[in-house]
Design a protein around this nucleic acid. Structure first.
Lengths: 267, 267
DNA sequence: CGCGCCGTTGACAAAGATCAATCTCAGTGG
DNA sequence: CCACTGAGATTGATCTTTGTCAACGGCGCG
């Protein structure tokens, strides 16, 4: 429930941009390529072009804003390592986390077509972030229609996840919501090669998780204890270990259709 | 909470398609054009092309599915008159309504890029619906990049509305949620010329409204009585009359930024 | 060593759900 | 004209889930 970040949002000065440009040029894009290939087919040419996109890379500490509500950004953020989230703030410190993001995600790709941001974007853990100028992304879209369509598809999957979360917050029990987000994040991480054998890192606080699920940290804590008592998940919060995938899916009424991963990433 | 529709989803046979094609050809598209122009600039050529899109028109009774979860549609639905919604069903008859749609909306425009539907689409009132073949929409996008970008922008605004609803369901009180959806629908209707002077038709049941807001019909009913008692809205449920717009916005913490109506429709 | 963040616990309060009537009113048939 | 019907709105009593508040505990870090 606490405000997520203090201080001012990050912005890139021209000199910094030049200084970092070289560093971010090619191998860094692996998570992005992997993610796009998990949802669409990319031609070799498009893959090359994505790799060649100019990018400024930065390490950002946990709980820093990458962009703020009402900003009019000129670049998109590509998450290279770490977890981030989008969020809205309401009166009296209420906060809703709208989405959780992992490496390969471009959480603000919508800003390519929507001038004003209607929410904030912040790191949850320390992150490496690549900044991609709108200009070069637009050019990419014009020159490589399959890249454009992969990006459009990505924004549509983003929306599909919102629908699923809305359903959870509106109509699932607290147990179900937690089970559901565990299943979802495990699959998202698995798609970019960051999870295996029903285990993955779980680096966010219970307060953050509550704000994502429309619950309080206290209630999240109690529900987690229930899930542990039922032997559905492992005992440590910092690493998610799913003991019983099927039971967790059943509890969360989880059906992965909405993730639209038509091409499963090779493990 | 009740299942929304019975019987089978609508589909169009080849002969019907031919029979209706002529009828839906041009003037019918006024709400769509008006809606697209409320969110983006359209060139004259693009506007012409949209008007010339082949379309099959049908009158559909209230509470009928236009498309179902897991369908793989070959057309998009353009709502010409009436209200519709997208929804998900969970076990034990729980239902979440994901969005409310009014004339000019294409509720399933995402299906252009996402093969499988992850939710249902149904009428709430009697509707006139135009069916637009994916094929011709794709061709439109290729030939008129500004039409493509308007449609993409439309899907992004769709997602922005999901985010706002998620925030409401997760973090707003029942009063606030109802106030918020009233403000939103009034503006959406106003943008297509179907509302004026803080009045608009309100043709959906309290049960439907509850399913949209993550509440029960009983609780919706009680909250409506509160809003009436506070003289924020008019006494009749079938017509929304907003007595005190500012107070309603304040109660719902409503900020229209997320609707991204950069070009207000001329009244 | 002590501070602060985060996880955990308990007692209690409140929002909203559930269940079961009852009411209203438009549409229908006689 | 009037009884009958059914969907949807309204009401009351009660229950459950979740929130609130406050304290305490573990642990990493300067």
């Amino acid at each position: 429930m606490l405000p997520l970040a203090r201080g001012r949002a990050l912005c890139i000065t021209a000199s910094e941009s030049a200084a970092f440009m070289a560093a971010g040029s090619s191998a860094e894009k692996a998570p992005l390529i992997r993610k796009l290939e998990s949802i669409a087919n990319l031609s070799d040419a498009a893959r090359e072009a994505v790799s060649a996109l100019p990018m400024t890379v930065r390490v950002v500490e946990a709980r820093q804003d990458l962009a703020r509500d009402k900003d009019q950004p000129a670049h998109c953020c590509l998450l290279l390592t770490g977890w981030a989230c989008r969020y809205k703030l309401l009166n009296e410190g209420r906060r809703q986390i709208l989405s959780l993001h992992v490496p390969g995600d471009i959480p603000d790709s919508q800003s390519l077509h929507l001038r004003v941001l209607d929410h904030g974007l912040a790191t949850l853990t320390q992150c490496r972030v690549g900044f991609l100028p709108h200009e070069s992304l637009r050019e990419l879209c014009v020159r490589f229609p399959d890249a454009a369509s992969a990006l459009w598809r990505d924004t549509l999957i983003d929306a599909a996840i919102f629908r699923e979360w809305m359903t959870g917050i509106g109509r699932r029990t607290a147990h179900g919501r937690i089970a559901h987000v565990f299943c979802e994040m495990y699959l998202k991480l698995h798609a970019v090669g960051l999870a295996e054998n029903h285990r993955c890192p779980w680096p966010i606080t219970q307060t953050d998780l509550g704000d994502a699920l429309g619950l309080t940290n206290v209630h999240v804590n109690r529900m987690l204890q229930d899930l542990r008592a039922q032997a559905l998940i492992g005992p440590r919060y910092s690493e998610l270990v799913i003991y019983d995938w099927d039971a967790l899916c059943a509890l969360g009424e989880f059906d992965e259709t909405y993730l639209h991963m038509e091409r499963k990433a090779a493990a």
